[in-house]
Computed example of a mutant assay.
Amino acid sequence: MSDSDAMPFPDVQTLPGSGTPIWRRIRRWALPVLGLVVLALLLSHAHKVDWAGAWQALRRYSPGVLLAALALCTASHALYGCYDLIGRHHTRHGLPRWRSWAIAVTSYAFNLNLGSLVGGVAMRARLYARAGLDETTVAQIVGLSLATNWLGYGLVAGCVFASGVVKLPSESTLGEGAFRALGLLMLLLAVAYVLACAKMQGRQWKVRGRRVQLPSPRLALVQLGVAAANWALMASAMYLLLGGQVPYSVTLGVLLAASVVGVVTPIPAGLGVLEAVYLALLSGSVRQGALMGALLAYRALYYLVPLGGGLVLYVLLERYASAHPPPAADGNQELSPPPLR
């Protein structure tokens, strides 16, 4: 996943470009430099990869296994679409559920392949604006979606990392104890979010003349549950492609580690990052050819095939928006979120 977005605070009008000018300058140069370093390392090791073995592993997959993995990947994308339904419930905008879901699914497919600014933010903003929603409402939806994804990540990754099922490479600079502490911190952040939603329930803030507020604690729990299930589905597809050669918990842990590395590495679709992390953490458990075959199949089924579906959905959404222009006041009502039933 996925998910390759950075997590903002949910109810803000714009994604924070915050920090001191020094931090902005560091961030502007540090991330591209890190990306180039990672890319150089990947290219330097590319000739060591058993590509012939990977091709043989791909050819050995039965149609049934590939179809089952595709079904899991499709279910994950469909579940991600529910993130924007959470935003719809919270903001009480008037778009039909199917349209909100389709916008989220389309954006996710582009997000995975082209980066968060294109899919996660820009495409969502365009499609929701075409539907008649104002900027504040769109920002809340995007913020809640990103928060849902990464809070669910923190819940699942916290449990996996704190349990110690993922063994770091011996050359890793992060010790086993520090890794488990990181997992515990992630769990505490997820719990803190739910507690904050409970403590600040009903409290509102003014943003550009609109009232915004945190979700209810019940909706916060729904966020965690839906996102945790989505990360579990992603790992299930990879586990199936690996043929059960490593325990599911380990497959899940490696996927979570690869996902967070992909976030901080500015390479579209995390190209090569997923493969590098899996090779580093599982090279002693799975033959390199079989591992690369599973990774290539996963990238095709989870990234490339949904992109084709996303393109079709995007065209359909644009045509629907052209045929059904929104009323002037649609999506601009100032409403408080209802209680979750």
Rank of each mutant, 00 (worst) to 15 (best):
L133K: 01
L133C: 01
E135R: 14
E135T: 13
E135P: 00
T136E: 10
T137K: 12
V138G: 03
A139L: 02
A139S: 15
I141Y: 11
L144Y: 10
L144A: 05
L144P: 09
L144Q: 07
S145W: 07
T148Q: 06
T148N: 13
N149D: 15
W150C: 05
G152M: 13
G152D: 11
G152E: 12
Y153D: 07
Y153G: 09
Y153A: 09
G154K: 11
G154Y: 06
L155D: 01
V156N: 02
A157L: 07
G158M: 04
V160H: 03
V160M: 12
F161E: 03
F161G: 01
A162W: 07
A162I: 05
S163A: 11
G164Y: 07
V165L: 10
V166H: 00
V166M: 06
K167H: 15
L168S: 08
L168F: 07
P169Q: 03
P169M: 06
S170E: 15
S170G: 08
E171H: 11
S172E: 12
T173I: 09
L174N: 04
G175I: 08
G175T: 15
G175Y: 06
E176M: 05
G177M: 01
G177Y: 00
A178Q: 10
R180N: 08
A181H: 01
A181L: 15
L182S: 07
G183Q: 00
G183K: 00
L185D: 03
M186V: 04
M186T: 00
L188Y: 04
L189W: 05
L189V: 15
A190S: 14
V191E: 02
A192Y: 12
A192R: 14
Y193G: 03
V194G: 07
V194P: 13
V194W: 14
L195N: 01
L195G: 04
A196F: 11
A196E: 13
A196T: 15
K199D: 04
G202S: 06
R203T: 10
K206N: 13
V207G: 00
R208T: 05
R208S: 13
G209W: 11
G209F: 08
R210A: 02
R210C: 01
